[in-house]
Amino acid sequence: MVKRQYLPILVTVALFILVFLAGSFRYTGFFSMQVLTNLLIDNAFLLIVAVGMTFVIVSGGIDLSVGSMVALTTMLSATLIEQLGWPPSLVIPCVLLFGALFGLGMGAIIHYFNIQPFIVTLAGMFLARGLCYVISINTITIDNAFYKDMAMTKIQLPGGGFISISVIIALAVVLLAIYLAHYTRFGRNTYAIGGSEQSSLLMGLPVARTKMLVYAFSGFCSALGGVVFTFYMLSGYGLHAVGLELDAIAAVVIGGTLLTGGVGYVAGTVFGVLIQGVIQTIINFEGTLSSWWTRIVIGILLFVFILLQRIINVRASKSRAV
């Protein structure tokens, strides 16, 4: 018997395979290693951001600031490298630290002042986006050798396709996140808080620390996503990654994580991202379909998955063992 908490993730995986196969039958040249690896290459930054978001949502919160944080990271990186001439080896750790601290700050406000995460991260979103414009309202192009290398380097795979360095970073983040979620106290405490914050407090778990760390981790992931996005775009711009928070939340939900917290898997999020990617690819292959269909289809998918979660939950509360 399949445990019921695995059901949404299985549906997600099945759906991904189904959509991919459907694409393969319909379009010549779709079924290839390169289409698959392109999914990862094009969505590496989204994957990294969504992994951080998974932790936040599992803890019962939400982080609306991720898209702005990505933009701010591209902006900071571009300024520090192009205008202040810092070396990348210094810039990257700095922006990552900045992202983590930004998240930590939001987490602290959420916890200590007991304000809804939605509102606090909304303010964070305004702040980060606004700071981009404080730096500059124009695009700053990056012409740094290291960043160009990172953008151009292709790693050949034995199967034929190739991947970028960003993909390796993203996959490393995924593996790290799975380990964190399932094999460390931080991860388990996150699930516990998502299940019941009140209980977690009474069980003596470090709720304050864990909540702040969750937002710090999400901030870190957004900054890392921003770094990868910088490799991808080779520029810093205040309008980068607008609406990314929605894509990330959608990926997490489609990946089977309950928006109410406590239940979810990083691996599910990976497939949530891949499904979004494959829909995009199909719409590109179709040619006649416009890009806005992606939004509509993702909206429909969100609806289906949220409905599925509700049905599973209602069923579960009806059938109790023992």
């Binding site: 699930y191 516990a192 009140q198 009474l202 406590g262 239940v263």
Partner: peptide, 18 residues
Amino acid sequence: VNLCSNLSVAENIFIGRE
């Protein structure tokens, strides 16, 4: 009961001191 119903029985006993 002030435990976390989303976690397993074993985790509920040991969480924080796994």
